[in-house]
């Protein structure tokens, strides 16, 4: 009997679920509704303010959490949906799906550090 490595991906999936449920809606309301409708003043999201936010260590951490965990959530869910649609994907497909999440996570970390 062999142990599944699923706990790693399930853990990231679970963390992504929390972020997607609790934090992403706030971001969507701010950037998708409040800002375009002019309810919050445009200068609050001005380039230099957002740049300062992304350059601070805590801003960078928030951005990483909001970008990376939902990526693992989505790719894990999509991978398991394949099985539900009777596409019994193997290790290669799994590598591609989790590889996208992994690459995007590394890219986000590098970009945030460069900022």
């Amino acid at each position: 009997m062999s142990r599944s490595h699923e706990p790693i991906f399930w853990g990231l999936f679970g963390a992504g679920g929390m972020v997607a449920a609790l934090i992403l809606p706030i971001f969507i309301v701010i950037t998708g509704l409040l800002y375009p409708l002019g309810i919050i003043p445009a200068e609050l999201l001005a380039y230099d303010r957002i740049f300062a936010f992304a350059s601070s260590w805590w801003g960078a951490l928030i951005l990483l959490v909001v970008i990376c965990f939902p990526l693992w959530l989505s790719l894990h869910r999509l991978y398991h949906c394949l099985h539900d649609f009777k596409i019994h994907a193997g290790v290669r497909t799994q590598t591609v799906f989790y590889g996208i999440a992994y690459t995007a996570t590394i890219a986000s970390i590098v970009l945030v550090l460069v900022l």
Partner: peptide, 14 residues
């Protein structure tokens, strides 16, 4: 636990 930890254990559930 070894029955739970398998791919065909709890991890087969979505």
């Amino acid at each position: 636990m070894k029955f739970i930890n398998e791919e065909a254990g709890v991890w087969g559930c979505t």
